[in-house]
Simulated assay, not measured.
Amino acid sequence: MNTPERTADAPSDVPGFGTAVAAESLYLANLMVAPGLAFAALLVLWFKHRHSAPPLARCHLRQTIAGTLWGGALLVLVNAAIILMGGYDAPHTWVLVILYFTTCHSTLILFGAIGFAKAMSAKPYVYPLIGPRNDD
């Protein structure tokens, strides 16, 4: 069985490919699987590579950190709104929770999925609305 040979154009040969994919993976894991733990790992990755990483990795690291901070801020805002509008026993609490998850949380996941696909193809990506612009 013949296996195709890797070419120099393979995405995994691009400098920063592994770090970019890891950053996007940790961003998605933070939103869906292991909140907090994945965020801590993403912060470690960011502190380790933020100055020395190639442009591709720096781009994805900046986007995932910004997206994670926006997600945390939105979560705090929703909880503050719930508390200000009568607490967790109020009947409209579930309306706010469902609105948050169907709009904000799912949008953050969509941005992460697109970012992950771009990282896997070794392309830079800026999250719409929430992503900082790259100077690279």
Results as ranks from 00 to 15, higher is better:
N30W: 05
L42A: 02
R50M: 11
L42V: 04
I98N: 05
W94L: 14
V95M: 13
V33M: 06
L99Q: 05
R58I: 05
T3I: 15
V33G: 03
A34P: 02
W94E: 10
A81G: 13
A41G: 03
A38G: 04
A80P: 09
K48P: 01
C59E: 06
G67D: 02
I65W: 14
V126A: 05
T107E: 04
G131C: 07
L37W: 05
P35R: 02
Y127W: 07
H105L: 12
D136Q: 09
A119Q: 00
A38S: 10
P132S: 09
A113T: 08
A119Y: 01
S25V: 08
P35G: 04
C59K: 01
G115R: 00
L56F: 14
G115M: 06
R62Y: 08
V126G: 01
A20K: 00
A80Q: 10
L42D: 01
T64F: 07
Q63S: 11
P128N: 02
A113Q: 10
P35C: 04
C59L: 09
L69I: 10
N79C: 14
M32L: 12
G71H: 06
A73H: 10
M1Q: 14
G72W: 12
S52Q: 06
R133A: 11
W94H: 12
G115C: 07
P91V: 11
A117G: 13
L84I: 14
